[in-house]
Design a protein around this nucleic acid. Structure first.
Length: 581
RNA sequence: GCUGGCGUAGCUCAGCUGGUAGAGCAGCUGAUUUGUAAUCAGCAGGUCGGAGGUUCAAAUCCUCUCGCCAGCUCCA
């Protein structure tokens, strides 16, 4: 349907620009696009509504899509005025005996199909935007204009999608990060994030959380240097495979590299001593800060940085322990994601790529171990053929956020290559030296990216346990300032991250400011509270819990935080995350 | 990196075809002492991203550069 819509769009564009040249026009996840070239001109944004209008007309005409097979030479003759179709026939399709051509309403296009029966079946669509593209996606080739359309079976779905996009725009973590004073970016360091006090509070709480999770599961934390001799990176293979993404520096004429990954450092720690089979599996975790050079055009808020922090881990184990380690890692992933409200998790197993190290037997064993571990747990997964790392197969974990976008987070990879390159060993029960298997794993991946995703997932409405400011105290008048200061001290003494608003403003304004800062608890202190020595609490969700004791508040909040609850108050349903102001 | 768009006060933005900058919010000061989403008034705040150039005159035009945004770097 979407692909058929692309043909209809091409027809509409040809009507506006009769000599338009068409390249490729496939479907996308939510619509379609077509790459076009307008000789001696360009499509303008004013053209989009016109195109859409013509498309509506064509659609209403219910013109049938007719398929015709023709020989390659016949097609070459047929498309003489379409330079890109010729190029396609002479390039990509040069080995084909015959190709197919689809025609609707007098417009013919080279196409493998299939198509819907007639143009009335292309559903609800709209022309979205124009962007730049190149013939075959190579910037050395001729520039084209890519016209994007959205297309869904029904108007309702189209509308739903538009609403979702609007919602996504409002949740943009870059905007929320600015409004909530979490972090900033500066020209002086493109691609590097500057954490502000509130953002760093969240970041540190996240580390604290993941550190505890790792510890619970037998992880031992290490920390390795950020700059290491280039020799090490030659040995690890990063210099050969990853050099373009690395930063280099020199001191005393010796070349160094800033680490883009933590594994070589971890391996040096492992190698610093002899290991018995009794030590395995050895799970070395590292909250590692890595630098990776990325092309300027791909930088994107916290999602794509040039320096970020991984909740990395390297597990050294015997071959027969791999399955068990995978199994417990999967448990960890599901458990951790659940805490953040990511319930919809998709699992992929990526298999041997074209360029790979190690024997087929090794790959088969490792891939089988991954699959068996997942099967035994009853975890459904999909295969990504040939998408594994060059050193081993991997499992990838995707989550769906509350507006149904997919994100890849954790991964666990089996590595036979590094243990070989670095000559890793352990002494087995037989007294002989054996080679351990290395598992690379990360639950959250990049903490920065994870926080970006999480910010958008909750639209900045952090649960109490990770909210940078948990409570703000709002005296109704200056007469309560002194009482408010006492309450502040009490809350802080109980470990609540609290602040006090002493501005000479009305309560309404203070509440508004607190709401905009998305602070979970507003502690309101007026004459009544000062007298009774109680506090009244307004929840961010609008509910009130009036006239309670401070200890009741701190115990309740403490309990909710300890369990990482998403509730703001017991028995009050959690706040629906919306991007509203 | 490439293509296109954008860059004006801390933030969000206005500033027509060139005549050397303006609003709201935030900030500061004062008044007000207020009970569940914006009290009033005053003040202060900008080498218009940066560097060149055209011009009597540049935020406005040109060149370069930096950054941001969208897209591309799979796909008849």
């Amino acid at each position: 349907m979407r692909h058929s819509a692309a043909h209809v769009m091409a027809q509409a564009i040809r009507e506006l620009y009769p000599n338009a040249q068409f390249a490729f026009g496939p479907e996308t996840d939510n619509g379609f696009y077509y790459d076009v070239k307008i000789p001696d001109g360009a499509l303008k944004s004013e053209d989009l509504p016109k195109i859409e209008k013509i498309m509506q007309r064509i659609s209403k005409g219910r013109h049938p899509f007719e398929k015709k097979d023709m020989g390659r030479n016949e097609a070459l003759a047929f498309f003489t005025s379409q330079e890109f179709k010729i190029k396609a026939l002479e390039g990509l399709l040069k080995d084909e005996q015959s190709v197919s051509v689809y025609t609707q309403d007098g417009f013919s296009d080279l196409c493998r199909g299939p198509h819907v029966e007639h143009t009335g079946q292309i559903g609800a669509f709209t022309i979205d935007r124009i962007a730049g593209a190149y013939w075959l996606g190579d910037s050395k080739n001729e520039p084209l204009q890519r016209v994007y359309g959205l297309c869904f079976a029904t108007k309702e779905e189209l509308k739903e999608y538009k609403t979702m996009m609007e919602e996504a725009r409002k949740r943009d973590h870059r905007e929320i990060g600015k409004k909530l004073e979490l972090f900033s970016f500066h020209e002086e360091g493109a691609g590097f994030v500057f954490w502000h006090p509130r953002g760093l509070t969240i970041f540190n709480l996240l580390i604290e959380f993941i550190r505890a999770e790792n510890g619970k599961r037998g992880g031992k934390e290490i920390k390795t240097p950020e700059i290491l001799s280039v020799d090490l990176w030659h040995k690890s293979g990063h210099y050969d495979n990853f050099r373009d993404n690395m930063y280099f520096t020199t001191a005393e004429d010796k070349p160094y590299a800033v680490k883009p990954m933590n594994c070589p450092g971890s391996i040096l720690v492992y190698k610093d001593g002899l290991h018995s089979f009794r030590d395995l599996p050895l799970r070395l975790m590292e909250i590692g800060h890595v630098h990776r050079f990325e092309l300027s055009g791909v930088l994107h808020g916290l999602f794509r940085l040039r320096a970020f922090t991984q909740d990395d881990g390297h597990i050294y184990c015997a071959q027969e322990q791999v399955e068990g380690e995978i199994s417990s890692f999967v448990d960890a992933v599901f458990s951790v994601y659940g805490v953040f409200g990511f319930e919809d998790i998709t699992v992929f197993v990526s298999t041997k790529p074209e360029h790979a190290m190690g024997s087929d037997e090794m790959w088969e064993n490792a891939t089988a171990a991954l699959k068996v571990a997942l099967d035994k747990k009853g975890v459904q997964y999909k295969i990504k053929e040939g998408e594994g790392a060059f050193y081993g197969p991997k499992i990838e974990f995707n989550v769906k956020d509350c507006i149904k976008r997919n994100w890849q987070l954790g991964t666990i990879q089996v590595d036979f290559s590094m243990p070989e390159r670095f000559g890793l060993e352990f002494v087995g029960s037989d007294g002989a030296r054996h080679r351990p298997v290395l598992l690379h794993r990360a639950v959250l991946g990049s903490l920065e990216r994870f926080l970006g995703i999480y910010i958008e997932h909750v639209a900045g409405l952090f649960p109490a346990w990770i909210a940078p400011v948990q409570a703000i105290i709002l005296p109704v008048t200056d007469n309560q300032n002194e009482y408010a200061a006492q309450i502040l001290a009490q809350l802080k003494a109980q470990g609540i991250r609290a602040e006090l608003d002493l501005a000479s403003e009305r309560l309404n304004k203070k509440i508004r400011n607190a709401q905009l800062a998305k602070i979970p608890y507003m502690v309101i202190l007026g004459e009544k509270e000062a007298e009774s020595k109680n506090i009244s609490v307004r929840l961010r969700s609008g509910e009130n819990v009036n006239e309670i004791q401070v200890s009741q508040f701190t115990q309740t909040v403490g309990g909710l935080c300890a369990s990482h609850s998403t509730l703001l108050w017991p028995e009050i349903p959690p706040q629906q995350a919306t991007a509203a102001e």
